[in-house]
Amino acid sequence: MSPEVFTSPAFVALLVGEVLFWVLIAAGLAARYLLRRPRLGAVLLAGTILVDLGILATAVLDIRSGGAATSAHGLAAIYVGVSVAFGPVLIRWADVRAAYRWAGGPAPVALPKQGPERARHEWDRFARWVVAAAICAAVLGVVHLLAGPDADLAALTPWFGRLGLVTVIWFVTGPARFLTTPTTASR
């Protein structure tokens, strides 16, 4: 990556957004379980959506104001897609652990290494990645449209191929292992 990537408003928004994302999750779970304020917790957890919108808006505004597209803008698109597709799963994962630790909830259940439950998990996560990749591609397309005819968007084009490569690797290392394994047999 070139040095200008690290000074790009999109890169700064990504860093701030990532920190804010985790702060909002921690604050939301603390409000829900430690302060016993479930509504406040829900509002804080829902605030993660605003983080995504802020990152996306910063990336688009940066390009619209004449900034050249950099890898940071592609990463912003990836961040938004992954956050939308995997955010609810991540929040549920953290919520189960916070409920167990702070509210006497049931212990988190470990995912089996084989069997139908593992196969469902792998297919679910792959499907979520496909959704994330589609959102990323759509965001990149929207950035192309909103940037205007004079914008230098050459740095964004390779991200489409990267999305495809990650999709193939994810499929091969994840759900493809369960194509020949019976998923209905008991463990």
Rank of each mutant, 00 (worst) to 15 (best):
V12Y: 02
G17E: 02
H121Y: 15
F86Q: 09
T157F: 12
A99K: 07
A154L: 05
A46D: 13
Y33V: 09
I135K: 02
I91T: 09
E122F: 07
T180H: 10
L179H: 06
T167L: 05
D52T: 04
A57V: 10
W123D: 14
A127C: 09
A107H: 06
P149N: 13
W93L: 14
A10F: 03
L156V: 06
A99E: 09
L111G: 02
D52L: 13
G104V: 08
S186T: 12
L15N: 12
V96H: 03
F6V: 08
P175I: 09
S83R: 06
L145N: 03
L53A: 11
Y33H: 13
A68L: 08
F86E: 08
I55R: 00
V89T: 15
A59T: 04
F126V: 14
G148W: 00
V16P: 04
F86Y: 14
A13E: 02
L35K: 10
G161E: 10
V131N: 01
A98Y: 10
E117D: 14
W93Y: 14
V5W: 00
R37E: 13
R177W: 02
D95Q: 04
R64T: 02
A13Q: 03
A138S: 11
H121L: 13
I78G: 04
L153E: 01
R101A: 15
L35T: 11
P108H: 10
T157M: 12
V23L: 14
L24Q: 00
S83C: 05
A57N: 06
A137C: 08
V142S: 00
E4N: 08
L24F: 09
W102L: 12
V43L: 15
A134S: 13
L29H: 06
A30G: 06
T48L: 08
V143T: 07
V12G: 00
V80E: 01
V23T: 10
P9E: 02
P108W: 07
G28T: 08
V16H: 05
P9V: 01
T70G: 05
A31S: 15
E122H: 03
V12D: 07
R37M: 13
L56E: 01
G104K: 10
S2E: 14
G54K: 06
E4F: 01
G67A: 15
A176D: 03
F6N: 06
A27E: 04
V43F: 09
S83V: 05
A94I: 04
T184H: 12
L61R: 11
A107D: 10
A46Q: 07
A69G: 09
L20V: 11
A185S: 10
P175Y: 04
L145I: 06
L45N: 11
T7V: 13
L56P: 02
R37F: 11
T180L: 15
V16W: 04
L56W: 01
R125H: 12
L163K: 01
V131G: 03
W123F: 13
R92K: 15
F126Y: 14
T167M: 07
G104A: 11
F178T: 08
A68F: 04
L45H: 01
W159D: 02
A132E: 03
I91Q: 11
H73Y: 04
R118N: 14
L75C: 11
A110E: 13
A103Q: 01
F160P: 00
L165S: 05
F6L: 15
E117W: 01
D150C: 00
